[in-house]
Amino acid sequence: MILVFVETDAGGVVEVSRETLTFSRGLAERAGGLPVHVVVIGDVPAGTTSQLAAQGVQRVHHAQDERLQAYSGAAWSAAVVDAARDGDARAVLAAGTPRGSEILAHTSVRLGVAMAANVVAIEAVSPLVVSRQVLGGSALEEMRLDDDVAVLTVAGHAVESAEVSDVTTPDVVTVAPNLRDGDLLTRVVRTDQGEPDQSGALASAHVVVGAGRGAGGRDGFEDLLELTDLLGGALGVSRVVTNLGWRPHHEQVGQTGSRIAPDLYIPCGISGAIQHWAGCSGAKTILAVNNDPEAPMVTKAHYAVIGDLHEVVPAINAEILRRRP
């Protein structure tokens, strides 16, 4: 079987995990029609099982255990390792999120095998060769995985999530993992609600409004946030913006921030450095707003407006409001 670690939130299975399930189904088919099992941890909203069924999942290993209530990469990976051993997994996958990457790194060490991070495609199945993002997404590496169990994280937007046509209800087994000494030392002791990490929302937003150095300062975001709001989208920023402390780091798009793949990305006052491009090249349409017609973001975009964002963005906002019925 192929095992997938699935992340959930108040809406059930998160989008990147659905993509990973779709990706895993592709691998399972190419490997000769293996069943797909998942591990979910902790309380999950009603409806999660039917979302998993829609992804063709055949068995759910549900770790409902007080010791896993608070997140610990080591302890959560113990649940994945148990399920992998129990079902003789040929491959273990998770979305390449911070948690997915951490848990699978532990899992690969515990299983004594290699791990491939940020895989975007399966090139061959025997031997297994994958393509994965390296150099912050500006290049791909074909990597061979020779171990008995292949452990890999799937890059965001490697595939679009798709549901199966004939849905069957998976069996759900409740499991309690075999923890090692020390697995609980790295538990979250407290979560400060102050500034929730919205990077998940950013990664799955349909419209992202981008803001770079051109915003001009901490108080230069009002019009950009209004546009974000008018479009029901999310705000994404460049590293200059987070480095200067104008906006929180979880809003950063790029090599060391989130990878986004919205229908529309509107980068305003962002030059389009390769490390930023690494995070936004998955956008279906890019509309750049920049006062420099030679900026890489402008030349790489599908559409552009040349001008001062502090004049262009308010005009767009006004025009949207004017056309509202």
Binding site: A114, A116, V129, S131, V134, S138, A139, L140, E141, E142, M143, R144, L145, D146, L287, A288, P293, V298, T299, K300, A301, H302, Y303, A304, V305, I306, G307, D308, E311, V312, P314, A315, I316, A318, E319
Partner: peptide
């Protein structure tokens, strides 16, 4: 580390369509 080879995404020529300059482009 299991590397078979590296590859680069194909370079794309610019096909940007300029919608206008300044607020008049709204």
């Amino acid at each position: 580390g299991g590397r078979v080879r590296l590859k680069l995404p194909p370079a794309q020529p610019s096909s940007v369509q300029i919608l206008g300059e300044g607020p008049d482009a709204a």
